[in-house]
Write a protein that binds this DNA or RNA. Structure first.
Length: 275
DNA sequence: GCCCAGGGAATCG
DNA sequence: CGATTCCATGGG
């Protein structure tokens, strides 16, 4: 990973990395756009301000240690997205979709945080999901420099539905508590899921109340880095009927999750363009 | 199989 | 403006 250090900032090439596409695409819910090409958020218990300018990405006020130990992994900077895109773009539709959304990177987020977040995401919209998660962190997360960390499973496992009332999470509150208990007492072991193949990993996660196929696949893609996980929401179901009635082309399956992201945003952009 | 849960955003009339 | 629709999952 090539970088340069300028004052307290770390700067990299923004090749295959669009901040807005990556941070505002519904894979993570704790990033806020605070200006043109400037985002702030908290991940892995750290606050970060990150911006882009003139083909560069700038990690503000970041130590080399945090960059190397946290952010390279989180933003998946050692993965060659150019090569993956080349593979996927052999398909015509994917090639067009890639032109719209080719700057998306799949973040390597915390597994527990991701499962919990996508349970909250079910039957819900992004602004409200962000609100519930923000209140979850403020109420139960550790105070850190710049905000609140995502609460641990241990911090939530002994809570009642009434305790979670301030979140206004609705019927999802009971699922959050059930999930926290399963993570806290090792009924769910992240390492087992990480080392399992997609189908098995899915079945493990779906033992959690509130985790169906869609939530499981989102968690596996965004929290367990299973790039072949292919979450099917209503948008993607439409895309599949329209372009791939017989399924994704075989060569795209191993990177199905990345393809899903390109197609998802392509379809939504086209919808907006038509208006 | 069908309806509902709990809520706010988006869209419609 | 108010009314309606949307959304993923589990339980009755």
């Amino acid at each position: 990973m090539n970088y340069e250090i300028s004052k307290k900032n770390i700067i990299i090439d923004a090749k295959d990395f669009d901040l807005e596409q990556t941070l505002d695409c519904g894979q993570a819910f704790r990033w806020e756009k605070v200006g043109n090409n400037v985002f702030e958020g908290i991940a892995k218990g750290r606050f970060l301000r990150i911006s882009s300018k003139d083909g560069k990405i700038i990690f503000h006020n970041t130590s080399l240690q945090d960059f190397e130990q946290i952010w390279i992994e989180y933003f998946d900077l050692d993965t060659d997205y150019c090569a993956i895109k080349q593979k996927l773009c052999a398909d015509k539709t994917l090639s067009v979709a890639c032109d719209y959304a080719g700057g998306i990177r799949i973040l390597r987020q915390d597994a527990w945080e991701t499962v919990c977040s996508f349970i909250i995401s079910q039957n819900n919209n992004i602004p409200r999901i962000k609100g519930i998660i923000a209140r979850l962190c403020e109420n139960f997360g550790q105070k850190i420099d710049g905000g609140y960390a995502f609460p641990t499973a241990q911090a939530l496992c002994d809570k009642s539905i009434e305790d979670l009332a301030p979140l206004r999470a609705g019927f999802r509150a009971k699922y959050i508590i059930d999930t926290a208990q399963k993570f806290a007492d090792n009924q769910i072991v992240c390492d087992e899921i990480l080392s399992s193949e997609l189908e098995l990993a899915r079945n493990i996660l779906m033992k959690i109340k509130g985790v169906g196929p869609k939530v499981a696949d989102c968690a596996l893609l965004f929290g367990f880095y299973k790039l072949d996980a292919f979450p099917k929401d209503v948008w993607i179901k439409r895309v599949m009927e329209k372009y791939y009635p017989d399924g994704l082309p075989e060569f795209a399956v191993e990177y199905g999750g990345i393809a899903q992201q390109y197609l998802f945003h392509y379809e939504r952009m086209v919808g907006k363009d038509e208006k």
